[in-house]
């Protein structure tokens, strides 16, 4: 299936969960938030949420500066 990850098209096996995608894209899941189609997916549910073809995923990193 095709996903849009941080604005770029990306192929992923059907049934890929949010957790699996984060493992592919981010070096470390700590300090990372994931939004699917504009809504944050609570971190505790990453393993249970399977992505669907055509969804837009934003992988956000916490920044500390102020």
């Amino acid at each position: 299936m095709m996903l849009t990850v941080n604005g770029e098209a990306r192929d992923a096996p059907a049934g890929t969960t949010v957790l699996a995608l984060v493992a592919l894209v981010a070096a470390d899941p700590r300090g990372v938030a994931v939004a699917v189609d504009g809504e944050v997916v609570p971190k505790s549910t990453w393993g249970a949420v399977a992505l669907r073809d055509g969804q837009a995923v934003e992988i956000l990193k916490a920044v500390q500066g102020g």
Binding site: R30, G31, V40, P42, K61, A62
Partner: peptide
């Protein structure tokens, strides 16, 4: 609820 834990030290 957004960031349950911080990134590992040195990462960000």
């Amino acid at each position: 609820d957004l960031y349950p834990v911080p990134p590992p030290p040195g990462m960000v």
